[in-house]
Every structure is written in C-alpha cells, then in structure tokens.
Computed example of a mutant assay.
Amino acid sequence: MTVQLNHTIVAAHDKHTSARFLADLLGLQVSPRYGPFIPVAIPNGVTLDYMDQPGSGFAEIASQHYAFLVSEDDFDAIFGRIQAAGLTYWADPAHRIEGEINTNDGGRGVYFDDPNGHVLEILTRPYGSGITR
C-alpha cells in the first residue's frame, strides 16, 4: 500500500489573504475555491486548504508548523521575497536566532511566521541528511 499526504486544512483569520501570502512567497498559484477552502497546491501534489477559523472575529488559532523542502535556487528566490516583504525570520523554530538562516545538514533553512501565527519553514536538505552545525 502506498500512503501519501494529499491535503491538510490550515486555519486562517482570512483564508484568501493567507493563501495569497503563502503562494506569493513560495512562487505558487492560489487554486480556485473548493467548497469552504482556498487551496494552494504544492508541486508534489499536496494542497494546503485554507479555511476561515470558525467563531467570531479573530478567534485564537493554534499555531502549526509547515516545512517546505526547496532547491537551492528556490531558497534564494523565496528568501529574497521574505526579505523584500520585510518579514522577520529566524534560524530556529523557537524564534531565538533572529535575522539569520541555519546551515543544518549541510543545507540552508529559515523560519518565518504567516499572518495567522503559523510557523513556516523553507529548507534545502531534509533533516538527518547530512552534517549539523
């Protein structure tokens, strides 16, 4: 049996704005609305389906972590868009090393937050694939 992640639902204060934020930074497209969802398709076939958080106004959204494995060239392009947008970024998921990237496993990685407080990460080498810093 082959098991593959197909999609996950991402809670948002504004699903349209949140989907556009991710798509713009990663250089992807926002897909057409599907039911209550605004999907962003990742090239490996997985979609992140943004959905407005039930409740009134800006109800608390539990922070999730979404990591994207990218090529070195894509890292440069995405990181450039992060910097151009003036986003705060960190070398670590705990947000202790601000304004730096990491070189874990012989690659590069960086963390930043989306408008809902979700922690987003881009990395060029999977965890455990090489040396650590």
Rank of each mutant, 00 (worst) to 15 (best):
D114W: 10
N102D: 10
V70L: 04
D24H: 13
T132F: 06
R96Q: 15
Y127F: 13
L69P: 12
P54Y: 11
T17P: 07
P126A: 11
G27W: 07
D105W: 15
N44K: 12
G99D: 08
Y50W: 10
A23M: 03
F58N: 10
T2C: 05
A19H: 07
I78S: 10
G35H: 01
M51D: 00
D105R: 08
Y66Q: 09
H16R: 14
F37H: 10
G35P: 01
L25Y: 04
Y111V: 08
K15N: 01
T132G: 11
Q29H: 13
G55D: 01
P93S: 13
V3I: 15
G117S: 09
Q53P: 06
E98I: 13
Y127A: 12
F75P: 15
G109W: 12
F75C: 14
E60H: 14
D73R: 07
P39E: 04
L69E: 11
Q64W: 01
T103Q: 11
G45L: 04
F21D: 07
G57E: 11
P39Y: 03
D114A: 00
F75Q: 12
P39T: 07
Y111M: 03
H16M: 14
R33D: 15
A67V: 09
E60S: 14
N44I: 00
S71H: 05
L26K: 03
Y66I: 15
V119R: 09
L22W: 07
D114T: 02
H118V: 06
I9H: 09
D24S: 12
N6T: 06
V46R: 01
P126Q: 10
P126R: 13
I97P: 00
H118P: 11
G86I: 13
I122H: 05
H7L: 00
I82M: 11
V40Q: 02
R96A: 14
H16K: 13
H65C: 13
A85P: 01
F79Y: 15
A23G: 02
V30W: 01
Q83D: 06
R133K: 13
L48A: 01
D76E: 06
K15H: 08
A91W: 00
Q29W: 00
F58R: 12
I131R: 15
F68T: 06
G57C: 05
I82A: 07
V119A: 04
E60W: 02
A62D: 07
R96S: 14
Q53V: 09
I82P: 10
P115D: 02
R96F: 09
G27M: 08
A41C: 03
G55C: 01
N44Y: 05
T132P: 05
L87Y: 04
D113H: 09
P32Y: 01
G107P: 09
A59S: 06
D73M: 10
T132A: 10
D14W: 10
Y34T: 02
I42H: 02
D74H: 05
G57L: 05
T47F: 02
T17R: 15
V30M: 05
P54N: 06
E98G: 06
R81N: 05
H95P: 05
D113S: 15
D74N: 15
V40L: 00
R81G: 08
S31M: 12
F79T: 08
I61K: 00
D114I: 04
H118G: 06
Q83R: 15
G35T: 03
A23I: 07
T8M: 02
E100K: 15
T124R: 08
